[in-house]
Each structure stands twice: as C-alpha cells, then as structure tokens.
C-alpha cells in the first residue's frame, strides 16, 4: 500500500512537473500534424491515412517519450533530486518503473493525437484494438526504456538530448516506415531487426489495417524482450554507476 502510494506519487509528480507543461503538450499536438503534412506533400496529395497512421503514431510515441525521460532523469540527477528518490524506501525496480510510468502515459497520450486525426479523416472501422492497444503500450514502454538507457549513459542534460537523437533518427529511418524492410540493402536489414521500433511499427500496421511484415506474435515477443533487456541493462548500469 505504502509502496503503491509512493509509486503513484512519482508518476503524478512527473506528469505534472515535466510532461503536462504547455510546450510539451503543444509538441505532442504539432508533431503528428507536421508528420502528416510532410507525408501529404511527399505523396503529391494522394494521402492514404490508414497507411500513414502506424508510422506517425509510432513516431509520436518515440519522439514524445524518449528524450523527455532522458532529460528529466538527467536533470534530477544534476540537482540531486534523484537522490531523494533513491533514499525513499522503495525498491530500485519500483522507482524506475514509476519514472517510466509518466513517460509511458505521455507516449500513450501522444499516440492518441494521430489516432483521433485518423478517425476524423478516414474510416477506421477495421482497426483491431486488441492489437493496437498492446502495440501502443509496448512501443511506449520500449521508447521510454531507450530514454532510460540514455539517462543512465550521460551526465549532462544536453548530452541526453543529443544521445536521444543519435539513437532515434536511425530508428526512424530503419524501422520500415520510410522504406519497406524488404527494400533495405541486405547489410542494413539485420540492424533494422535489432531496433524495437521496427516491431512496434509492424504491430501497429497490423492492428490499423495495414499489412504485417512479420508475424504478430514475433512483434510482441520482440518488443517485450527489448523492454525486459533494456530495463535490466539500465538497472545494472544504475547500480554500477549511480550507487557505486
């Protein structure tokens, strides 16, 4: 009970002090609109919203989640506020899950913006929510965990932003969003399969009525495996570097 109160206090505090700030909310709105517009211009006006939606949704999650978590944790470490959390009688696993919680919720909310746009602009009757919802959750989790991994690897706020971009942009270009995986050069393809976003985009595509490139079970298994591996790796690094 006490642990659950502490957990939710951290989630609420993070949402309020970091995520639900006007600049972040406007970023969450502007970002999917900008991507939709870019694809619209690229397609020469013939916009296929249903085909576009998985990619824009995945990118909204990725860009809304990764750097926010990396930056907020790095900031809290710089001002030693993170020590206050480490001193609370809460296990490191629960503490880091609470920090991830705010980012995941923010990612889920970000994903709602393109989905709402999709509902307005096209018919999404064929959407399989039992696939879309877990795909959004797992993609948000994996993107937040990339942010945690960044936070554990840097010590300055500006490094968090730079390192996030260093990881995010290759993910965007190699996840099958711009170029189908089958059209990627053979030597690049293994790299695509080593990125969580590839599986997130594929699962979202499956759920939103597009064609699946990989079996759905593989998408979910790979996403869950990425989440677990990144979480354990981050915990190990925190114990090794922050509580050294």
């Amino acid at each position: 009970m006490a642990r659950s109160a502490a957990f939710w206090a951290i989630v609420r505090k993070d949402l309020r002090t970091y995520y639900f700030k006007p600049p972040n909310i406007s970023w969450g709105l502007v970002f999917p609109l900008a991507w939709t517009l870019m694809f619209f211009l690229r397609s020469g006006g013939g916009l296929d919203i249903a085909r576009l939606l998985p990619g824009v949704t995945a990118m909204s999650i990725l860009f809304g989640t990764t750097s926010m978590l990396a930056v907020t944790i790095t900031f809290e470490r710089r001002v030693a506020a993170f020590d206050r959390l480490l001193l609370a009688p809460l296990s490191l696993e629960a503490l880091m899950l609470a920090k991830l919680g705010g980012a995941v919720l923010f990612g889920v909310l970000n994903s709602a913006v393109p989905l709402i746009l999709g509902f307005i602009l096209t018919d999404l009757a064929a959407v399989q929510w039992l696939v879309v919802v877990p795909a959004i959750l797992l993609t948000s989790f994996s993107a937040a965990l990339v942010g945690l991994f960044v936070a554990v690897s840097v010590s300055e706020v500006f490094e968090a932003q730079t390192f996030s971009n260093f990881l995010r942009f290759p993910m965007v270009f190699l996840c099958g969003l711009f170029l189908p995986l089958t059209e990627l050069p053979g030597w690049l393809r293994p790299l695509s399969y080593a990125l969580p976003l590839t599986y997130g985009v594929d699962a979202l595509r499956g759920g939103l009525g597009g064609g699946l490139h990989l079996p759905l079970w593989l998408d979910f298994t790979a996403l869950a495996a990425f989440c677990l591996a990144l979480f354990l790796l981050s915990l190990r690094n925190i114990r090794r570097h922050w509580i050294a």
């Binding site: 642990r3 109160a5 502490a6 939710w8 206090a9 505090k13 002090t17 030693a80 020590d83 206050r84």
Partner: peptide, 28 residues
C-alpha cells in the same frame, strides 16, 4: 537526509514538495 544542496522540485510549491516527500514514505 539533508543533502548539501537544496534538492527539492523547483516547479512544486513548498507544501506540494513536502506532500510529495510524505507520499514517498507511504504516509496517508
């Protein structure tokens, strides 16, 4: 523990900071 810097949250009020710290320790 009182650290050597003022390590509370600048965005929260004084009262909210203390309430947050109380929640960290599971105080109702």
């Amino acid at each position: 523990v009182v650290a050597d810097g003022n390590n509370l949250y600048p965005e929260l009020t004084g009262r909210e900071n203390l309430e947050f710290c109380a929640a960290l320790y599971g105080i109702g």
